[in-house]
Design a protein around this nucleic acid. Structure first.
Length: 438
RNA sequence: GCGAUAUUGGUGAAGUGGUUAACACGCUGGUUUGUGGCACCAGUAUGCAAGGGUUCGAUUCCCUUAUAUCGCCCCA
């Protein structure tokens, strides 16, 4: 048996319907925020992702899916969405476009060579957006609000926005130095992982799961205290604008980014699950990236959000998305004449907008009824030669078990009438629920 | 890269160093000659992840590999 590759999964049935629903909401909200959809390649030249080595280690070195193509070019499956969008921005010289800023959103699979665990796959799906060409703090606030809107519409009301600022380059370097100085006398008391982090990734020390709550860590320098005036004012503006938008947030100095082109605003969206807190999305300002990739110095901000994790969060919160797999009608038959009519009628009803299924395994009537039952068909019709000669059928409502004789030419009308009030009832009871909109 | 636990039919699973691997659901058929969902009856794993080893004998013990789940590192 050939099995699926490690860290991938098949999404099917009801689960697949949920995905499509989430993606539809993403499309709708993104359009309202005036982001336009962009599709970039699933693979790019390796150097796009492996450029500008920052303070992080593992990302660049071993966690991408790299391959050499038949033309001996070094390629990498995209591990995230931003780099491809920015590459496209540069390649299409969009910095010269009179329409500024440039706003894109994407939704697609990303690939990371990691060991799978809860909420972590090798192939993951993320949606996200990038706003390129504005440094105004209002775009920071808008980006965060956009993500929160999507989460809320899907039913996640308790997403916590963790907000932080890294400041500009000057502020960051000062901070980094202060942090190293602060921990230097305590290196020996740090856990082994943190000793390693001290050398390669000092900002992550604050994330330590072992000593994170200790006094030493609580009193560690915070990025916010090392901002220069300009960066501080900028951050205050972002906060002010979020207040206007009534987006609650908590300033969390432990939020950092792994890559060094990030500056100023960084944020993460966090939810609770049975195994603790989990980030379902994250983003930040990356004013340094476009220049790093050889373009003009251009400010930009964006976020990415994992759909897999989003669905995990919904499941944990027991939020039901309005998806249904039921069919409207199952057509049963026994003899060839009836079968021929079933073939015709199935198509006719499908063309009129109904979800119709008919028997294709020549099973006994009993088995056909079981099938109709399994499919949750709202109606069944057993085609009967004698009735057909009279141009009528007997249609049965599977819920009420009532049967009715209906003239064939009135069948569509009948179905329309009786399926109308059959609307989805979703589990969220508050007014903000958008599930009923269509 | 490191660690823990697991892997038995279509599904959920029980189980033992020794002839025929429980039980349940599902499925198929029948009781019911064209109207199911209930009931009853029957059928449904030359097979216990793969390979190797220990043994007279292994699904059961050991090793390796694969995969799964969950942690650590990392998290763009």
């Amino acid at each position: 048996m050939i099995k699926k590759p490690k860290g991938t999964k098949d999404i099917l049935g009801r689960e697949a319907k949920k995905w499509k629903y989430v993606e539809r909401i993403v499309d709708e909200v993104m359009e309202k925020y005036h982001y336009s959809y962009i599709r970039t390649p699933l693979f790019e030249s390796t150097e796009l992702f492996h450029r500008g080595v920052g303070e992080t280690s593992d990302i660049i070195t071993k966690e991408t899916y790299d391959f050499i193509d038949r033309g001996e070019r070094k390629m990498t499956l995209r591990p995230e969405g931003t780099a491809g969008v920015v590459r496209s921005y540069l390649e299409n010289k969009m910095y010269g476009d009179p329409m500024q800023p440039v706003k894109f959103y994407y939704n697609g699979t990303m690939y990371r060579y990691e060991r799978p665990q809860a909420g972590r796959e090798r192939e993951l799906t993320q949606f996200g957006c990038e706003l390129i060409g504005s440094d105004d703090p209002l775009t920071d606030a808008e980006t965060i609000s956009l993500a929160i809107q999507i989460y809320r519409i899907l039913g996640l009301k308790d997403v916590v926005v963790h907000l932080n600022t890294l400041g500009d380059k000057e502020s960051r370097e000062t901070y980094r130095k202060e942090l190293l100085d602060y921990f230097k006398p305590h290196i020996t008391s740090l856990c082994d992982d943190c000793k390693e982090r001290y050398l390669h990734n000092p900002l992550r020390i604050l994330d330590c799961k072992v000593d994170g709550g200790s006094e030493l860590f609580q009193n560690a320098p915070k990025t916010i205290d090392y901002l220069n005036k300009e960066s501080k004012e900028r951050f205050d503006k972002v906060c002010e604008y979020l207040d206007i938008l009534e987006i609650p947030y908590t300033v969390d100095s432990s939020i950092v980014r792994g890559l060094d082109y990030y500056n100023h605003t960084v944020f993460e969206f966090e939810v609770s699950t049975e195994s603790g807190k989990m980030a379902i999305g994250a983003g930040g300002r990356y004013n340094g990236l476009i220049g790093q990739l050889g373009g003009p110095q251009t400010p930009a901000i964006g976020f990415g959000s994992g759909i897999d994790r989003l669905l995990l969060a919904l499941e944990y919160e027991e939020i039901e998305l309005p998806v249904k797999e039921d069919i409207d009608l199952y057509l049963l038959y026994v003899n060839e004449e009836e079968k021929k009519y079933a073939i015709y009628l199935t198509q006719e009803l499908r063309l009129n907008g109904f979800t119709v299924e008919t028997e294709s395994l020549n099973r006994s009537l009993k088995a056909q009824f079981k099938q109709a039952d399994r499919l949750n068909a709202k109606f069944t019709i057993v085609l009967n030669s004698e009735e057909l000669n009279e141009d009528e059928v007997t249609i049965k409502n599977t819920k009420t078990k009532e049967e009715e004789k209906v003239q064939l030419d009135a069948l569509i009308y009948y179905l329309d009438e009786n399926l109308m009030d059959d609307e989805f009832e979703c589990s969220c009871k508050d007014d903000e629920c958008h599930h009923h909109e269509d």
